[in-house]
Structure formats: C-alpha cells, structure tokens
Computed example of a mutant assay.
Amino acid sequence: MKRVAVLGATGLVGRTFVKLLGGHPWFKVEKLIASEKSAGKKYGDLVEDSPEEFRDYYVISLNEFLENPGVDLVFNALPASISRDVEEKLAQEIPVFTNARAHRYDEDVPILVPEVNKDHLKLVEVQRKRRGWKGFIVTNPNCSTAILTLSLAPLRNFGIKKVRVATMQAISGAGFSGLSAYAIQDNVIPFISGEEWKIENESKKIMGKLKGDEIEPASFDVIAIATRVPVIHGHTEAVFVELENPDIKSIREAIENFDPLKDLKLPSYEKPIVYTEIPQPRLHRDRGRGLTVTVGRLERTSEGVKYVALGHNLVRGAAGGSVLNAELAYKLKII
C-alpha cells in the first residue's frame, strides 16, 4: 500500500481526487494539503460532501508539507502558477502525478493517457537520469485534450491526416470562481484563454511516437475552437477527422472494440469508450464512474469522418486520469 498526499485538496479537482481515492486498494491517502487559511481545519468542515473516510483529517499547509512530505507519491491539483517549483522539489525524492500544466511541455515529461500512449511512461527513466531525481513527474493533459485523444486513438490505424475540433466545455472546467453566473447563464462564450493552444499542442505530443529518449509529435495538424457553455460537468466535442482510409464500418467497430488495458485490471479502469448515437452531458458524463468517453454521431464526410465525443472533465479530464496514470505506473513497477 502506497502512502499518498493530495495537494490542493479543497479545490474542484482536489475534491475529485479525494473521492476517487477513497478505499483505494493500492493507494492510501494520508495527507490532505491546501492553503494556509484552510490549514489546521478538518476536511469535513471545509468540504461538505467529503467522503466519511476523510471528514476528520486535518488539512496541512503546503509549506508544512514540503518540510516533511513523508509519503510515497503525490497527486497535485494545485494551480499551475505555483506547481512548477513544488513539483520539482518533490520529484527529487517522490513520484508526482499532476493535473497542472507546468511541466506538460518538457521534453522528458510525458503527458499520459494510459489507453493512448502508455509507452511514453518510459520517459520516466530519461527524466530521472537527466535530472538526478529519485522520483519523477507524470502529467495528465488538459481536460478537453484527454477526451479528444482518447476518441482519436481507435482511428490511428485508418491514417489520421487532419483533426478539427470544436469544444463545448462545462463551467466546472473554470474552477469555483472561474465564471460568474451572470456571464454564463443564457450564453455561450466562444473563447477560453489558452485552451485552443493546449488542445492543438498536447494532442500532437500524446499521439506522437516515442523514439529513443524523446517524443516525435504526431505529423497531423490539430485545429481547435474552444467554447464555454452553461453545463455543470461534461465537455462535449464535435470532431472532424481527415483519414487515409475512411471505412466507416471498420471505424465503428474499432471504436466499439477499443479496450487496450482491460487485461491489466487496474482498480479504477473502465471501458474507455462507449458508443451511443447522441451523447449528452446530463445523461452520459458519469459513465464508467466518469472515466468512460461516449462517442456518437459517427458519419462519413468527403474527407473522412465526423463524430461527437463527450467526457467528464473532472474525472477523465483531470483527477481520474491522473489516478489511472499512477495505477499504470504501479502495475508496471515504476513506483
């Protein structure tokens, strides 16, 4: 049993980490870390819907934790603005599985979606050698990117040439204070700062090939438009893919049969993709405990196919993806 700490445990992603790790067979949460103003208070007093298991845990400040971590691995849900230094300090001794973007674009740090690019975990050894660390950093992607790349993975064998995507992203992706009710009610906001760049660049890294000590990004272009819509949880994406071999029947079969890690029996693992003709956030975001992406509306176009993908942004797109990353590393004896 690995001793675990959750950083940023009172935020939306941090709360999701805590819920997902309750009763975990491999990871035992021992420390919950939050801001100085939360330190010394019981987690249940700060988070009303805390799992019973953690209600009486006393929250620790980040500075106190960094003085003496005393755990085997860390899940990070801190803001990107403070994550870089914190992650590098911890990774000298401890594996860090992070939702923050601070290290996603480092050459020796994988952006991991286990069902899509598990071989990228080999970068951990490159990272340790280059940086002289005992631990390491593994990132998960931006929430929209996680959903998109998972939906694209079954299409690899059909020769992806171009990807175009328009996202309709839930308000929880902006955090507790990210949007006012007045701004989002009765509205669609066709701009999310930095989001389109992340989707376009992270997708190419995730879908790329590991060659030696580095990742060669995917050769196809990804172009995104990101919008915010008045949905609480669940990002919906309209995806258009140009393919070398757009055999619609074979593509449908590949999507429905896609289940690459089922034999590893990871504790959190769920079938990664389920096909439903009309995916909808309210109906389908919680599929597979929030880890399953729903794909539908698959149709042939003049250049390839178009479809709709839907996933839970806080689970598959954030904390749940990071927990899966750690489970894969544990199963492969990297931790």
Rank of each mutant, 00 (worst) to 15 (best):
F136R: 06
S203T: 15
D263E: 15
S322F: 00
N68H: 14
L210P: 08
V124K: 03
G70M: 03
N157P: 00
G22Y: 00
K2D: 08
E303H: 13
C143Q: 11
A100F: 03
S203M: 12
E256C: 09
T294E: 06
R289T: 03
Y307F: 15
K333W: 06
G8Y: 02
A174V: 02
L298M: 09
K161Q: 15
F17W: 07
L66M: 14
G304N: 07
R104N: 14
G175K: 01
L7S: 08
W133C: 01
K31R: 15
F65L: 04
P190C: 02
I147G: 01
V163C: 08
A254D: 02
L310D: 05
K262N: 07
A224M: 05
E87W: 00
P190H: 11
A39F: 13
T139K: 00
H120Y: 10
A329H: 10
V305N: 08
E214K: 15
G317W: 03
S193R: 05
T98W: 02
L46V: 10
G288I: 10
A319P: 01
F27Q: 01
K19G: 08
G234V: 09
D108H: 14
G234K: 04
L179V: 15
D85A: 15
L66H: 06
R156A: 12
L328D: 00
H312D: 15
I184T: 09
K42W: 01
L20A: 12
I255W: 03
L46T: 09
A238Q: 05
A224T: 05
R131A: 04
E93V: 00
F97C: 10
I255V: 15
R130N: 12
V138K: 06
D72G: 04
G290S: 02
I82T: 14
F75P: 10
Y57M: 10
L266T: 09
N140P: 00
S144I: 06
P279M: 06
S302H: 08
F75I: 12
I278M: 08
E214S: 15
G159N: 07
V109G: 04
S193Q: 11
Y43D: 13
E214P: 00
T16G: 05
V29K: 07
V109F: 06
E299R: 15
V305L: 10
K42Q: 10
G132W: 13
Y182L: 13
L12Q: 13
H284T: 03
R316V: 14
A174C: 03
C143L: 13
V124W: 07
R84V: 05
G212P: 07
L179C: 06
T292L: 09
L328S: 02
A238W: 06
L121V: 11
Q185E: 13
R300M: 10
N313A: 12
Y182H: 10
R131E: 08
W197E: 15
P114E: 05
A5P: 02
A91N: 08
E303R: 14
G135C: 09
N68S: 14
K262E: 12
S219N: 11
S144H: 06
G132F: 13
P217Q: 10
S144M: 14
S322D: 04
A183W: 07
N117L: 11
A224Y: 04
